[in-house]
C-alpha cells in the first residue's frame, strides 16, 4: 500500500519533536478528520536553520510531515514557501490517492508556520500575501 520511502519516513521520522522559542509555529488539520500537523521553525537570516514537527495522524501523515521538514531544512524562507504537496509526494515515491490530502496538509503546515514567522517578525514573504490561516469550518479531505 505504501512505498518503501513512506515506510522509512514513518518508521524513522526525521525532525520529530517540539521546539522551544521557535520563530514560527503552524498547526493545521483537526481531530475530526483524523490528522493534525504542527511545524516549528528556527529561522536566522531568512534561512530555516532548524525545523521540527509533531503529527497526529495515519502513517502517510507522519511520513509527509517528516519529508516536508527534510525538504525545507536549510532552505531560505522564500524557497520554503514554494514547496508544494506534489514535491512531497514525489519525494515519497508516491502516495495512494486517498492519502494525497496528507501531503496537502504538510504543505499547509509549512505555509502556516512561515505565515506565523512573517507576522511575528513583520516580514513579507512573497507567495503568502493572500495566505489566510485556516478558518474554523471543518473540511475533511
Amino acid at each position: 500500500m505504501y512505498t518503501a520511502e513512506v515506510m522509512d519516513h514513518f518508521r524513522n521520522p526525521r525532525n520529530v519533536g517540539n521546539m522551544e522559542n521557535a520563530d514560527g509555529v503552524g498547526q493545521v488539520g483537526n481531530p475530526k478528520c483524523g490528522d493534525i500537523m504542527k511545524i516549528y521553525l528556527k529561522i536566522k537570516d531568512e534561512i530555516i536553520e532548524d525545523v521540527k514537527f509533531e503529527t497526529f495522524g495515519c502513517g502517510s501523515a507522519i511520513a509527509s510531515s517528516s519529508m516536508a521538514t527534510e525538504l525545507i531544512k536549510g532552505k531560505s524562507i522564500h524557497e520554503a514557501v514554494t514547496m508544494t504537496n506534489k514535491a512531497v509526494i514525489e519525494a515519497l515515491g508516491g502516495l495512494p490517492p486517498v492519502k494525497v490530502h496528507c501531503s496537502v496538509l504538510a504543505e499547509q503546515a509549512v505555509k502556516s508556520a512561515l505565515y506565523d514567522y512573517a507576522q511575528k517578525s513583520n516580514k513579507v514573504i512573497k507567495g503568502l500575501e493572500n495566505y489566510k490561516p485556516e478558518d474554523d469550518e471543518v473540511h475533511c479531505h
Binding site: G34, D35, F56, C58, G59, I62
Partner: peptide, 28 residues
C-alpha cells in the same frame, strides 16, 4: 493518536489487528 499508525507499527511487530479509524476504511 491515530489507529492506522498503530496498526502499521503492530504489523512491524508481527501483530495483526484492526481499527475503527477512517484512515483504514477508505471513508472520511
Amino acid at each position: 493518536i491515530e489507529g492506522e499508525s498503530i496498526l502499521l507499527l503492530l504489523d512491524m511487530e508481527g501483530i495483526s489487528a484492526s481499527s475503527g479509524s477512517a484512515c483504514t476504511s477508505g471513508s472520511l
